[in-house]
Amino acid sequence: MGVHVRSTVNGDAVEFTCPEDEVLLDVLRNRLGLTGAKEGCGTGDCGACSVILDGRLVCSCLVLGAEMDGKVVETIEGMADGAKLHPLQQHFIDGAALQCGVCTPGFLMAADALLRKNPDPTEEEIRFGLAGNLCRCTGYDKIVRAVQAAAKEMRG
């Protein structure tokens, strides 16, 4: 029993065997030791498990590990360039865009996906772009501002 899978996670070739019904989130967390993606709901309603799969933002709780063969996955653990934080990460810290921080990895992945597609989003585009990620602490104010600040910096 189990599916043998080869994929690329944060640039590293990985191999794992997982049960057919195991979701990518559990593969990342329990088999690959990447616990940055969180399970807030398990049903695609909170975005805390967001990762980028073949260039598209997805909830890793709604993808099977079995589907990962040959796929490229980006997670929060691969966002910084070594010791240098991604501008989004730096602005989240500087702008106090996190309180408890459990939604933060998902927000950062979603914001990253948004800015890749739209480097100069309006406030409304940011708010709708991040609507799949729930935050209960901040009221989103400082999150939106941090994304605006990072986008500005990234546009140079």
């Binding site: 940055g36 990460q89 810290i93 921080g101 950062l108």
Partner: peptide, 21 residues
């Protein structure tokens, strides 16, 4: 002042360990 929190880097890089981690 508005200093950076000590757990900030861990929380933006996925290192921070929550209950299920």
């Amino acid at each position: 002042t508005r200093v950076a929190r000590p757990d900030g880097v861990d929380k933006v890089t996925g290192r921070a360990r929550y209950g299920a981690d």
